[in-house]
Amino acid sequence: MLNYILRRVLYALPILVGVNVITFVLFFVVNTPDDMARMQLGMKHVTPEAVEQWKQERGYDRPVLYNGAAAGMDRFTDTIFFDKSLRLFVFDFGPSDAGRDIGHDIRQRMWASLALAVPIFIIGMLTNITVALLIALFRATYVDVVAVVALVVLMSISGLFYIIAGQYLVGKLLHLVPISGYDDGLNAVKFVILPVLIGVVGGIGSGSRWYRTIFLEEIGKDYVRTARAKGAPEAAVLFRHVLRNALIPILTGAVVVLPLLFLGSLIMESFFGIPGLGSYTIDAINTQDFAVVRSMVFLGSVLYIIGLMLTDISYTLVDPRVRLN
């Protein structure tokens, strides 16, 4: 397995370089270093000298990817791309274009994102699996029909609606939890109850329907028939046999998103005033803070690659037939 992981890490390097190149090209197609400087320096009384000085200080006065004026390797190394990318590979994100240390901000914001995303992920998955198993238990009955219709309705409603309706009902009318805000440590609990509830309810429609499909596919297989023929109760068949065998597709979807939980949820964090990483990236795009954008894209890519590796590894845990070679 170690060999496999090493190989995957080596494969990841060119992928990360590629992602970086694409990020650079896309960003600088839309924004020039002059635009970035003007955004940071403000709108009033900005002189061309100040713009030049800002660019020079941050190394944005050089070509983006290729320096035709330089000689030898400097053509590639004396560029914004090389200067800004190299440090990323040792996770040294440096300062943002506004001057704040990006690593510090990420470390600070990541906990808020996790405080929201982890409960939504765990409770959501358990709820979806339970609901899907119950529907599978009552398959081909009116319960199944009504439940599927309800799930389709739930998944058709916009996530924003759940947020606004949840805040209105639970926070504003019933006065049960704060409408928005955040605090550190255990004090965060009262702030995340509502977004977690909304996140779980908002995800039931699509999640349960997906799991129901998986379970129904498993239920039709021979080993289930054998279990029933041996007299196993229906609940035992579902929870002991079907669930275990359905874990591979469930894991495929679940483990890959595990590392991405760090990156948070933009809308949820924005509406609930939760200072996570979701809004960090969008704020950076809005303020044309390229240093933050490239760091977050890089981090997202790394986490995604880790997620894929974890998925592969998890297969070996739930299915002994799978070997990583």
Partner: peptide, 18 residues
């Protein structure tokens, strides 16, 4: 000063006296 990015939660909290 608390970070409040959206106007709807801000307004509702104002009406609640927060």
């Amino acid at each position: 000063f608390s970070l409040e990015k959206e106007t709807i939660p801000y307004w509702n909290k104002f009406l609640q006296g927060y």
